[in-house]
Nucleic acid binder design. Structure first.
Lengths: 246, 246
DNA sequence: AAAATAATGTGTTTATTTTACACATTAAAA
DNA sequence: TTTTAATGTGTAAAATAAACACATTATTTT
């Protein structure tokens, strides 16, 4: 019980200067951002990996990351990494989790903030000029450098959950897509099969798909209709409670 | 497009030493943990706040937090703060989000990792000996120091969502509770009213409540039956997909 | 040109889940 | 003993989800 009161900072009001001393003291830590960049290509969910630049992990793949600069917002750092690696600057990006084990980095204490990014591979395809960058099938990701396997898996689980409750999957598709594309995307991410009729019914009922009155081109079968997702309409709707279930 | 290849670290394999230089370089950052500690008392959801120890924010309330030590896991730091402030060391604790705006702390760059903690106020009650600590009704939390209002609100939203999908609410209740207690808890957290019969039906159908064959004591009305939550059984069950809905 | 192929596009029926709703029971209090 | 205020339970209706089959269309093959 003594611990409640002993050493309680609230009992001594501190000047800004006193705090500054602490903040600039010896317990500062390197902070990095790691991006788990997902893409969707040939009906498979992919993740963009880079060969580790660290001798210890030579040959192993790792996530795209970098240290956060002293005067850089962590979101900005994530955007910077994406921009540097993919050339894209208008991408879906969301923070997932922070990994702060003391020993996670061999070079010393580096706490890393994991971000999940979803990009349209078709759009991005032209920009990968770097042999050290590669799109990996998510099913075959293993043995990443550092603790990146754990980070990747956390982000993949996050995506699987998130995609069922929020319309972020559309960031992986071209602006115009067929319902078959959309279903393939969900099936790939969730690693499951769905009934085509019920899937369509579900999305039509949500009423966020805009029929743009165009058809697929250059497909070796009857072309399907193309749709856009109505992000504006979605942004305006207020969500309802789903209910207790676990 | 030049940005894709220019300055790409993967093109130069680095020694551990080279990385160490970077990691120990000038861009290290102070890292803190802030705990949003929820409690449930008199059928209201509460949050434990402390008076800011910073002159600039004198008189304002703030979350319980501290700097993470150079060789301290961030989870350990969160547990340490809880232990120091509440005396409790066996509490529910989960990371929620990391806040990394450059200007969020007046004393310099401090990135903070927010944790949500749920504790049993009855158990904890005896241990608050500190006038600077206070349980606030969540409805009346406003004008916190730093960016703590934003952090608090993010954690509250997180809790509202999380409690519908995971059995973490039980950490706010005594080990033995009545179904009325449980419903009051959900109603307080979600700020809504529920049908008593449907609520019971829902929880009985989940089949995680253990009827311990005891009744409430010292209540001024017909006592209700007491239950425990079967955490073991819950841990063993494998979750099913919920389905697409947004 | 006709037939075969392989995909798109649609509707109904059933089962399950959720919601709405009312009364008997029990212990405490009056 | 009566009153009161809560606990405890069941059913019917509505909404949602799941299972399921066939006609249509464009392409490809014959």
């Amino acid at each position: 019980m003594a611990s409640v009161t002993n050493g309680n900072p609230a009992t001594n009001i501190k000047s800004l200067q006193a705090i500054q001393t602490e903040v600039q003291g010896s317990n500062r830590i390197a902070l990095s951002v790691d991006c788990v960049i997902f893409g969707f290509d040939e009906n498979k969910l992919k993740v963009l990996l880079i060969r580790s630049d660290l001798k210890k992990y030579q040959g192993l793949w790792s996530l795209l990351g970098d240290l956060v600069a002293a005067k850089e917002d962590i979101h900005d750092a994530a955007y910077r990494i994406l921009k540097e690696r993919t050339g894209l600057d208008d991408v879906y990006l969301e923070q997932v989790h922070t990994f702060g084990s003391v020993t996670r980095h061999p070079a010393g204490r580096v706490v890393t903030v994991a971000y999940c990014s979803l990009i349209n591979v078709q759009h991005h395809k032209l920009k990968i000029l770097d042999n050290e960058l590669h799109w990996h099938d998510v099913q075959n990701v293993a043995g990443l450098a550092f603790d990146h396997q754990e980070i990747f898996e956390a982000c993949y689980r996050w995506l699987q959950k998130r995609i069922q409750e929020h319309p972020l999957g559309f960031n992986l598709l071209p602006k115009k897509f067929s319902l078959r594309d959309l279903q393939n995307l969900y099936e790939a991410i969730l690693d499951t099969k769905m009934d085509r009729r019920n899937f369509r019914k579900k999305f039509f009922a949500m009423d966020f798909l805009i029929d743009i009155d165009e058809m697929e081109q250059d497909v070796p079968h009857r072309p399907g209709k193309l749709y856009k997702f109505n992000f504006d309409k979605y942004a305006k709707k207020k969500k309802k409670w789903v209910g207790i279930d676990f």
